[in-house]
Computed example of a mutant assay.
Amino acid sequence: MECVIYREGSGEAREVDCGQAADAGQAVLENLRDLAGEEFGWVRLDAPSERDMDRLTEGLGLHPLAVEDAVQAHQRPKWERYGELLAVALKTLWYLPEEVEVETGEMMLFLGPRFVVTVRHGGADPAAEAARRLAADPTTLRFGPAAVLHAVLDVVVDAYSDAADKVRRELTGLERCVFSPSRDDVTEDIYSLKREVLEFRDAVQPLVPVVRELFDGPHVRWPEDLQPYLRDVADHLYRTDIEVRSLDELLNSVLDAQLARVGTWQNDDMRRISAWAAILAIPTMIAGVYGMNFQHMPELGWAYGYPLAVGGMALLSGFLYRAFRRSGWL
C-alpha cells in the first residue's frame, strides 16, 4: 500500500509512511483525515485482499459492491456512481513482442471529494507512470482527484496505442511472409496473433462507451478547464479502437489469403504429380505391351526393334514434358 498527499495549488507531494502492513490502512486514514483545505490523497494498492480493503472501506465510505469488484477483479470496463464516490474499472494492457502475446490486467479507481484509491491487478502499473506525469506537470493537480483519473486513463490509453503499433508491425511481417515467393506456412502464427488481437479488442472496445458516457454524459460534471484534457484522452482511445478494428479485419484477410495460398500450393503439387504420372504412363504402356510375351509381335525379330521402342518412349515422354512445361504444370 502506498499513499501520496498532493497540494492542488502548488503541486507539492509528500509520501505517507504506511509503516507495517497491519497498520498501513490506519496510517493512511489518519493522514487523509488531517488533510488541509487544498490537499487530496492518492492511495495505491496492488492486488489487495479483502482484509486489506476492510479498513479503507470503513474509513473512506467505499461501497461494498465496488470493493468486491476491486478485490475479485475480472470485471468489464465500467463506471458506477455511489453518492459522492465515483468508481471506474478498466483493463490495462501491454504487448510482449518476444512471445507475440498480449497481456492484460485490471485497475479500479475510486474518486472521492478529497481522495483517490487505485487498485491494480496484473503486471502493468499505470499508476507509477501516472504519478511521474503528475510530477512533471503539477499544474494539472489543480483539478484535484480528477487529475489522477485523467493521468491514469492517459497512461492506459497510451499503452493501448503502443501495443497497437507493435501488433501492426507484427502483422506487416506476416503479410510479407504470406505474399513472398517462398512457401512459408504461417497459418499458426496468424491465428495466434488473431487470438491476441481479440483479447486486445475485448479490452479496448468496452471502454469506448464508458469513456464517452463518463466524459460527455450529463451524470458527471468535470471542471471546465479539465474537459480538453479528457477529450484528448477520449480521442486517442477512439483512434486506437479504430486501429484495433482494422487490425482484426486485416488479420481475417491475411488468414484467408494464407489459406488460399495453401490451396494453390496443393493444386500446384497435384498438377505436377499428374503431369509426371502422364509422362511415365507412356513408357509404362509400351513396356507393358512388349512384356506380354506373345510370339507374333511387331519388330520382335528386327535388330533395331529395341532401340526403336526405347526411342519412341523417350520421344513421346519428351513431347509430353514440353507440353506440360508450356502449360505451367511443370
Results as ranks from 00 to 15, higher is better:
1 M>L: 08
4 V>L: 10
4 V>M: 11
15 E>V: 04
15 E>H: 11
16 V>F: 10
29 L>C: 06
30 E>F: 13
31 N>S: 15
33 R>H: 15
35 L>P: 07
39 E>G: 02
39 E>T: 03
44 R>K: 10
45 L>M: 11
45 L>G: 01
46 D>F: 14
46 D>P: 01
62 L>P: 06
64 P>L: 02
68 E>N: 10
70 A>R: 01
75 Q>M: 00
75 Q>R: 02
77 P>I: 00
85 L>Y: 13
88 V>M: 00
92 T>F: 09
93 L>Y: 00
100 V>R: 14
102 V>W: 08
104 T>F: 13
110 F>I: 13
115 F>Y: 14
118 T>V: 11
121 H>N: 08
135 A>N: 10
142 R>W: 07
144 G>H: 08
145 P>Q: 05
150 H>C: 04
150 H>Q: 07
163 A>M: 08
165 D>S: 08
171 L>N: 12
175 E>I: 06
175 E>Y: 06
176 R>D: 15
180 S>Y: 09
183 R>P: 00
186 V>F: 06
194 K>Y: 10
213 E>D: 15
216 D>N: 13
220 V>G: 11
221 R>P: 04
222 W>F: 10
226 L>N: 00
227 Q>V: 13
230 L>Q: 08
231 R>Q: 09
233 V>Y: 00
234 A>S: 15
236 H>P: 10
237 L>P: 00
240 T>N: 11
241 D>W: 02
245 R>W: 10
247 L>H: 06
253 S>W: 01
254 V>D: 04
256 D>C: 01
258 Q>C: 08
261 R>V: 00
270 M>Q: 13
271 R>L: 12
277 A>L: 05
280 L>E: 02
280 L>R: 04
283 P>F: 01
286 I>L: 12
295 Q>F: 10
296 H>G: 05
306 Y>S: 07
307 P>S: 08
307 P>R: 05
308 L>W: 03
309 A>V: 05
314 A>T: 11
316 L>S: 13
321 Y>S: 14
326 R>G: 09
329 W>Q: 14
